[in-house]
């Protein structure tokens, strides 16, 4: 098995700025607010995510979970409040988006692979075209990533010829090829059947073991309970309650959390 975390540190040696700062949290949100027109989607979210942790965000649909994730990698600009990622001020209008996005990977519910590129090319594209890295080096890394997710035999298949679970794993590999320190997952198993869910979650668990900070929006309560260091329950644009999974799942403080968990299957 490839040790991704070690690989990352080795690569970061020439440029100390990229070394993860182990002293501060990976992500800190402070009183983040966001409205779309008249609809207030985030109503003052504050959250701190320690480095190397797995955080699961749960909550009813429409509670602002996706928006929360998208504010972390600047796909959605915040209206007010502050978002700090690896010390980068994401809310700053003068944000260096590339600096942010090479640290933060994101995986979506609908995979969103580039349909005109093979699995291997999908993984190689960003390091080559965005970071300007050497093609051969990138290819070696991409091949290692594909074999890690056990899809090396599909390297030359187009996304349209892969199953949903395979596409989602390629999407994860594509993000990892940028050597992020933080990964965001937005309901990445919601469109998959149970077998594929297991494949994808196993891949996510691997990353967590390698020390990558993972933030997942998920309805997989079993995964949240078993793997998360921290679970966050959101409702109507605020973080209602957060804590270790044992606490949230067995003895939540807030009646809204209890009510929501009463409606979900494990």
């Amino acid at each position: 098995m490839l040790d991704l975390a070690a690989d990352r540190h080795a690569a970061a040696v020439p440029s100390p700025g990229l070394l993860p700062r182990t002293d501060s949290p990976a992500v800190v949100l402070t009183d983040v607010r966001k409205s779309f027109g008249a609809s207030r989607v985030l109503n003052g979210v504050s959250l701190s995510i320690p480095r190397g942790n797995v955080t699961c965000v749960i909550g009813p649909s429409g509670s602002g979970k996706s928006t929360l994730l998208r504010c972390i990698n600047a796909l959605t600009p915040v209206d007010s409040g502050s978002v700090l990622v690896d010390g980068i001020a994401v809310h700053d209008p003068a944000l260096d988006k590339l600096a942010l996005r090479r640290r933060v990977g994101m995986v979506f519910q609908q995979y969103n692979l580039f349909p005109h590129k093979t699995a291997l090319e999908n993984v190689m594209m960003a390091p080559i075209h965005v970071l300007g890295e050497d093609r051969e080096e990138v290819e070696a890394r991409a091949v290692a990533l594909l074999s890690r997710i056990r899809l090396l035999d599909k390297a030359h298949s187009y996304p349209g010829a892969l199953s949903g679970g395979q596409q989602q794993r390629v999407a994860i590999a594509r993000s990892l090829a940028m050597r992020p320190t933080i990964m965001l997952f937005d309901e990445v198993t919601a469109a998959l059947d149970p077998v594929m869910v297991k494949e994808v979650l196993a891949t996510v668990r691997d990353l967590a073991d390698d020390g990558i900070t993972c933030i997942l929006v998920t309805h997989e309560m079993g995964f949240a309970r078993d793997v998360a260091d921290q679970v966050c329950f959101t409702d109507q644009g605020i973080v209602v309650e957060e804590g270790p999974p044992e606490k949230i799942f067995t003895n939540p403080d807030d009646p809204r959390t209890r009510d929501f968990l009463g409606h979900v299957r494990f």
Binding site: N73, K97, R101, G105, N112, S175
Partner: peptide, 26 residues
């Protein structure tokens, strides 16, 4: 699809590279 464009943006593609490698080929 806007979602494909967002995936590229999340990978750090700027507007020019996004068009060159993703939007125009599609």
């Amino acid at each position: 699809p806007a979602s494909t464009v967002e995936a590229a943006e999340a990978l750090g593609f700027n507007r020019w590279r996004l068009h060159r490698h993703v939007v125009l080929p599609l």
